[in-house]
Design a protein around this nucleic acid. Sequence first.
DNA 1: GGTTTTTCCATTGACGCCCATTTTTTGCCA
DNA 2: TGGCAAAAAATGGGCGTCAATGGAAAAACC
Lengths: 155, 155
Amino acid sequence: MGVAGQDLFMGMPSGSLDKKGRACIPANYRQILAAQNTSGVYIRRHPDKPTLECFGEKIFAQFQQAQPAQEDPFFSEAYDDKAYSVFAMTELLAFDDNGRVRLPDDFIAHAGLGETVKFVGMRDKFEIWDPARLVAVNDERLANARKLRKATAAP
Amino acid sequence: MGVAGQDLFMGMPSGSLDKKGRACIPANYRQILAAQNTSGVYIRRHPDKPTLECFGEKIFAQFQQAQPAQEDPFFSEAYDDKAYSVFAMTELLAFDDNGRVRLPDDFIAHAGLGETVKFVGMRDKFEIWDPARLVAVNDERLANARKLRKATAAP
DNA sequence: GGTTTTTCCATTGACGCCCATTTTTTGCCA
DNA sequence: TGGCAAAAAATGGGCGTCAATGGAAAAACC
C-alpha cells in the first residue's frame, strides 16, 4: 500500500476542452479512479455552483447507502426526490484510449466551460471549473475556511 | 462484475417522439432492461406528476419486499390498493428492431409529450418527460432532496 | 376495402476507436 | 547541476461502426 495522499485528489492541474467536447482527465487522477475499481468517472452537475463534481465508486457507494434502498420506488415521494437529485444529475462517463471523456453539452453549459479548464482536487472528489468562475469561489471558500479556524479556536 | 453505476438508470438523455408515437429508448437504458431479463419495458402513468414511469423486472421484486408484513396479499386492503395502482396501470411495451416503443395515445396525453422528450434516470426506474414540464419539477425535487438531507444530517 | 398497426429497410448523424503529432515529464549521464 | 535522451502524457484529427430517425412495405384489424 502506498502513501495515503496518493489515493486522494489534490492540487489544481489545468486541462483543455477540445472542439468535440473532450476533456483529458489528469493521469494521476485516473490512477486514483482505477484504484477504486471505476472504469470511467462519475460526473454530476453541482446543485449550487457552476461546476462539475467528479468521483469514483468510493463516493458513489456512499450515495447508494444514504439513499433510496429502503424507500419504495412506487409509493415514496422521498424516493423520487432523492433519486432525481443524485442519479438524474449524474452520468458515468467512460474513458477513451487516451484518458479522455466526452462531456455532455448540458454539463459544459452548466459549468460554462471554454477552451481551458481547471481540475480542483477535493480529497475523494474533484471539480471541473472554468478558470474565471473559479476565482470568485476561491475567495469565498478560503474566507469560509478562515472563519472555521477562528470558530474552532479556543475561547 | 461490472461497475455499479452501469446497472442503474442515470443522467438525462434527450430523445424524440415521431408522428407515429414512437420513442427510441436510449441504448444503454435498453441494455439495463435486458440485463434484468426484461423483453421490452414496463410503463405506467405517474400517479401524481405528468410523466411516465418506466422500469424492468428488478423493481417488481422490490415492490414485494417493501410491503409491511401485516399487509397480507390475501387479506390486506392496502396491499390490494397498491397492487392495483401498480400492476393494473402498467403496460409492457415491446421494442421494435431499432429499440423503439409505440407509446399509447393516453400515455402521451398524460405526460403532454411533444416532438422532443427527456429521459430522466432515477436509479431503478426512469421517467419520460416533456422538457418544459420537467423544469418546474426539477426545482421542486431538488429543494425537497435538500430538506431531506438536512433532516438526516448528523447534529 | 379502407384504415390502422407492425415490420422492415435506408439514410443520417453521432460516437467510439484508433493513429499521428506535439508537449511535458522522467531518468540518466556528462 | 545542467543537458540530453527516452518515456509518458496530452492533443488533434480521421475513419468506421452503431444508434437514432424517417419512411415505405407488409400484415392485421375493422
